[in-house]
């Protein structure tokens, strides 16, 4: 497949997959692309002679051939770059500083914090070793990332503070630079912690699902009471304390709120501007998403895209993670192949120091890779993850979205298909819908700006 065409929000759009060129066309071109293959002008003229004037068809063919000559249409398949090294460099780790939590979210992939094992906190020694693991295995890379994660990382602030001090010292000694993030449910946020996180330039991912009833239904305290009122108060104060910068409010939607666009807009109505909601990943339960839900979910993304544009035009815009698409630059091919890097560039570290391909794999013992004290001992799995990219996966290689989604989530593929090379179908369908919305939005904004 070399092109993808779709109609959305009044725009006929053609994406040239291998170059990334995005063309907004008229209905005539859109229809002709069902027949035109780059070398069959006579067939196109014959097929459309009764519908359009011959001169018009010839005019369109001339424009199409010009795009082909400019490598913006039917461009050649991108192959694995020769410099896509067989030897990956570690770029980031997810530090599970706490396998414990003060909420009991119904959909938690982490088994409400303990990842199916005993609850526990990461020691300062393990945190230091995790930092050294990156330094030792990142080669000439300068920039690395560490996410403080859980469970709930604020339940182990002693280790977080120690790790941050250690990281800053090692930056000075090694010349490496670490970007730090912390993912929290917001329960323990207070003025003192806000000040600390701001002073240390730690980006935040804050969990909020949307409307009160939606959030409380899925994110109760241990005693079953809803957490919405406390979380909204806390995250509002935290975001205000950092002048509305350097954060993402991240929600999860389920079969219980298939009208999730209303949840995004509810959060936006409260003045928050950096937003994301993700589909729950679950099966065989009342909140799991199924293929039957897809048409309704697609309509919600369409509605969200409309609202996104309307608010942006009024100067009341918000950023939605999945609509942020850089059509002019974007990641390099190597990055598009390696995607999240789970299992070869990115690792999760448990409180005990064990290494897994990512936070979602923690607790799946067959994916244990080693530990921060002795390094990666399973040498086969990282290679399998590195080779599990879009050009090597049968279902991805011919998919129009391959250079935007990077092959989907390995953990979901394993969960649903027991094979990291077979992508999770519902995830694929939702990703493609979000991409069409993002392409439409960026194309429309480019047209409106007269670019």
């Amino acid at each position: 497949m070399n092109i993808h065409k779709f109609y959305l929000n009044g725009l006929y759009i053609i994406l040239d997959i291998n170059s990334g060129a995005v063309h907004v066309v008229d209905k005539m071109v859109y229809d002709m692309m069902d027949v035109f293959d780059g070398s069959n002008d006579e067939a196109v003229l014959s097929a459309f002679s009764g519908q359009y004037l011959a001169e018009e068809v010839a005019e369109v063919l001339s424009e199409l051939h010009q795009l082909i000559d400019e490598n913006k249409l039917f461009s050649k398949m991108v192959e694995v770059p020769l410099h896509f090294s067989q030897k990956p460099l570690v770029k980031s780790v997810c530090l599970h500083v706490a396998h414990d939590c003060n909420l009991r979210c119904n959909y938690c992939f982490a088994g409400t914090g303990d990842f199916g094992h005993t609850r526990g906190l990461m020691s300062k020694e393990v945190a230091e070793r995790a930092v050294e693991f990156i330094i030792e295995n990142s080669g000439p890379r300068i920039n690395s990332e560490i996410d403080f994660f859980g469970g709930e990382p604020l339940m182990n602030m002693d280790t977080v503070r120690h790790a941050v001090s250690y990281i800053r010292r090692r930056e000075t000694e090694t010349g490496k630079k670490f970007k730090l993030t912390l993912t929290t449910n917001g329960v323990l946020l207070n003025d003192e912690i806000n000040q600390y996180l701001n002073d240390n330039n730690i980006s935040l991912v804050l969990s909020l699902d949307g409307r009160r009833e939606v959030h409380d239904n899925m994110r109760p305290f241990v005693n079953g009471a809803g957490s919405y009122d406390m979380i909204l108060k806390n995250v509002t104060k935290t975001i205000d304390s950092r002048n509305g910068q350097n954060y993402y409010l991240r929600g999860t939607f389920t079969a219980h709120n298939l009208d999730f666009a209303a949840d995004v807009l509810d959060i936006a109505d409260k003045g928050f501007t950096q937003l994301s909601v993700e589909p729950v990943v679950a099966e065989d339960c009342d909140y799991a998403l199924t293929e039957e839900h897809l048409p309704q979910l697609f309509a919600q993304y369409d509605a969200l895209a409309q609202a996104y544009l309307e608010r942006k035009r009024k100067g009341q815009g918000f950023e939605f993670f999945h609509f942020n698409l850089d059509l002019d630059n974007g990641p390099c091919v190597a990055k598009r192949l390696s995607g999240c890097g789970a299992g070869h560039e990115y690792f999760a570290v448990t409180p005990e120091g064990d290494l897994y391909p990512c936070h979602q794999f923690v607790g799946r013992e067959e994916f244990l890779l080693g530990d921060v004290f002795e390094g990666v001992k399973n040498t086969q799995l990282p290679d399998q993850f590195r080779q599990s990219h879009v050009l090597n996966k049968a279902e991805c290689r011919d998919c129009w979205a391959r250079f935007y989604c990077s092959g989907g989530c390995h953990a979901n593929a394993d969960l649903f298909n027991k094979d990291i090379n077979i992508p999770y179908k519902i995830g694929c369908e939702l990703q493609k819908k979000r991409l069409e919305c993002a392409l439409m939005i960026q194309a429309l904004l480019a047209l409106e700006s007269g670019k």
Partner: peptide, 12 residues
Amino acid sequence: KHIITVNKLQEE
């Protein structure tokens, strides 16, 4: 007249 290209893959 019929096609507008709105943006400008081959090109740490």
